[in-house]
Computed example of a mutant assay.
Amino acid sequence: MQIDLTGRTALVTGSTAGIGLAIAKGLRAAGATVVVNGRTPERVQAAIEYCGTEGVRGVAADVGTADGCEALITAEPKVDILVNNAGIFSPQPLFEIPDAEWERFFAVNVMSGIRLARHYVPQMVEQQWGRTVFVSSESAIQVPPEMVHYGTTKTAQLTVARGMSEAVKGSGVTVNSVLPGPTMSEGVEQFVREMVGDEVESMEEAGRIFIERERPTSLLGRLASAEEVANMVVYLSSQQAAATTGAALRVDGGVLRGVV
């Protein structure tokens, strides 16, 4: 399959590391002009250099705030592909999570995507072509007991994405969600270390121990790579995925035991 996104502009939020950075690089490799986003100019510049400076530009803005989303929209008023990847997570006992933390998780993980899609998707409808992808998680379905606030926001993303796809049906615009499973990234490495401890030096081995203990239903038996998740997002951003909309596609390594 030859995916060609030449002439398309793609915005990937939270794309200075991990899955977001891999998505940005994958979209650029497919020919899209890519806008990377992060909270600091230094990290945004590093991401641009990683992806290759030609055809890549960046905007430093905190999309977890209304002002940050507005700044990003002002800098990049029109895109063809929107990947809502920005997100935060951290383990915390359920009854110890304060209001402020619930609100912070919802602002970053849910409202960022709503605010940006509210601006960009109507433009996509006007041009009768567009792709919006919400990077959710298998935690949306199988809520992790160590971070229920995170799982709650990921479930909300699925609802938002499905609702948006219904709102633009027949327009040539698709809206989908991707459900990664445990994936190797900068943040996940720290999380896995917290869950497993320092009993092993190799991150690869720590990941396998984490999967065995905490996600025993995994068929993959290891952490996925960010590139493996990015491949699904690049496909959903393409013309080849025109008939896929309103869907939640799993890249979870088989952690979820459901057949659909």
Rank of each mutant, 00 (worst) to 15 (best):
M203V: 12
Q128W: 04
D4Q: 13
R39Y: 06
G64C: 10
V36W: 00
F105C: 06
T33N: 10
G172P: 11
V259Q: 13
L158R: 14
D252R: 02
V110C: 09
T174E: 06
A224T: 11
L223T: 07
V148C: 08
P145F: 10
F89N: 12
M232P: 00
E70F: 01
A117G: 15
E96I: 02
P180D: 06
S238G: 12
L11E: 08
V36S: 06
M1C: 05
N176W: 01
A241T: 07
A230V: 09
V260T: 13
G130M: 11
V160M: 08
E101Y: 07
F191M: 15
A117K: 01
E126A: 15
C69L: 09
K169V: 14
G87R: 03
V44H: 01
A206R: 11
E126L: 08
N109S: 09
G163L: 10
F191P: 01
R115S: 05
T217S: 15
L94C: 13
N109F: 09
L179H: 03
Q45C: 03
V233D: 05
N176G: 07
A30P: 06
Y235G: 04
E199P: 00
G254C: 08
L220E: 05
L82T: 07
V56A: 07
I23S: 00
A100E: 15
R28Q: 14
G26C: 08
I97P: 03
T33K: 13
A66W: 02
V233G: 03
S137A: 11
G151W: 09
P77K: 03
R257V: 15
Q190I: 14
G18I: 10
R131E: 03
G18L: 06
Q92Y: 07
A30E: 04
G163K: 12
E205A: 14
A30N: 05
D62T: 11
A17P: 00
T245G: 12
P144T: 07
D99F: 10
A75T: 08
S136I: 05
G14P: 09
G38C: 12
G38P: 12
V148G: 03
E204Q: 12
V196I: 12
T16H: 00
A32W: 06
A46P: 01
V196A: 10
V125T: 13
Y150M: 10
V229R: 01
T74R: 14
P180R: 05
P41D: 01
L82N: 04
G253I: 01
S185T: 15
T53Y: 00
A140K: 04
V192I: 15
R162N: 11
A46K: 13
V255E: 04
T244R: 03
T244A: 13
A230H: 05
R115M: 06
Y150P: 09
P41V: 00
E201R: 10
G113T: 13
F89M: 13
V12R: 02
R162Y: 13
G18T: 08
A161K: 10
P182Y: 10
V79E: 03
P41S: 01
M203D: 15
M164R: 07
S137V: 06
G221F: 10
A86V: 14
